[in-house]
């Protein structure tokens, strides 16, 4: 008992400085943000010290905001599903490679992430724009009559997010799949389950920690992505994060704070749903 206690207190001592920093620079500002979101907008200062629910009330009573919230949820959901469906086979393959081969493969997939988001988004602009590669190729081939704008659409934003976020999903899934003891697969075979049933009844559930963490990572990155959404969505296809930025640029800080909190709430709800559906905790702990 004594050694357990002292071990815990040692762990606490080591964890304390980062916890203090986290508290000072994250929790305190967040509380302040929440406080601001209940204040009145002001033309001259950050806010007027008059408590109000108006910021939230206005957002929830405005159909435009609802449209943006729905759109945000939809694009997040589509990005999540595509990341999972496209990422799983890649991760499944990577997990079967030798540790060295796996490392090389994951490194190669990470290379695009080393390029700035801005550069990457402009790359998509050059491909999807009215005078971009896709449009001029299709025009040249006579498939479409006039140059077409592929930018500023749901598809453009989704594609842009997908290409950034897919590697995160793959890395998360690969790490999870690679740590599954192959004896579980052999145990399933010994019990008469063929490769498909073994996959759906054993491998897939056992990879649930990787699925859950990958989905959460992608969710948070999707909801907080800005450059991609601003450049590929443009003025025509905005998401919640764009509205936060718009409110800031028009100096409505309390409104921006309220929108940030709605965004945070959405992230939390999605995270809880992921945990409840995937239930990663059922395979954690000793086998």
């Amino acid at each position: 008992m004594r050694s357990r206690l002292s071990k815990n207190s040692l762990a606490l001592a080591v964890a304390l400085p980062p916890l203090v920093i986290l508290g000072l620079f994250f929790v305190v500002p967040l509380c302040y943000l929440l406080f601001v979101s209940f204040m009145t907008n002001s033309a001259t200062s950050l806010f007027d010290l008059q408590p109000t629910f108006m910021n939230y009330a206005e957002i929830f009573s405005d159909p435009f905001y609802w449209l943006i919230i729905r759109r945000t949820l939809l694009s997040t959901a589509v990005v999540l599903i595509l990341c999972l469906l496209l990422g799983y086979p890649v991760a499944f393959y990577a997990a079967r490679l030798s540790p060295r081969g796996r490392l090389i493969m994951l490194m190669v997939m990470m290379v695009p992430l080393m390029v700035s988001n801005v550069v990457r988004a402009y790359g998509w602009v050059a491909i999807l724009g009215r005078r971009g590669v896709v449009s001029s190729t299709l025009t040249g081939a006579g498939i479409i009559e006039r140059p077409m704008q592929f930018l500023y659409s749901f598809e453009a934003v989704t594609l842009g997010l997908l290409t950034i976020l897919l590697p995160f999903m793959i890395v998360s899934l690969t790490n999870s799949l690679a740590t599954i003891d192959k004896r579980y697969t052999e145990a399933a075979y010994s019990l008469g389950a063929g490769p498909w049933r073994t996959f759906f009844r054993v491998t897939l559930p056992l990879s649930s920690p990787g699925i859950a963490s990958g989905l959460m990572l992608v969710t948070f990155l999707t909801l907080s992505a800005y450059v991609t959404i601003a450049l590929l969505g443009g003025p025509r296809y905005k998401l919640l994060v764009s509205l936060v930025f718009d409110s800031v640029t028009t100096f409505r800080w309390p409104r921006a704070a309220a929108l940030s909190f709605i965004l945070l709430l959405i992230a939390l709800i999605i995270a809880v749903v992921i945990q409840l559906v995937i239930r990663p905790q059922r395979v954690q702990g000793k086998g």
Partner: peptide, 27 residues
């Protein structure tokens, strides 16, 4: 293997952690 008829006990038992004891045996 999955078309043969054998039962096997593995070194680390390899019980499926996401299934109950009864579900493991029923598998």
């Amino acid at each position: 293997a999955y078309k043969r008829s054998f039962g096997m006990v593995f070194q680390n038992f390899a019980l499926f952690p996401h299934l109950t004891v009864a579900e493991n045996v029923a598998f």
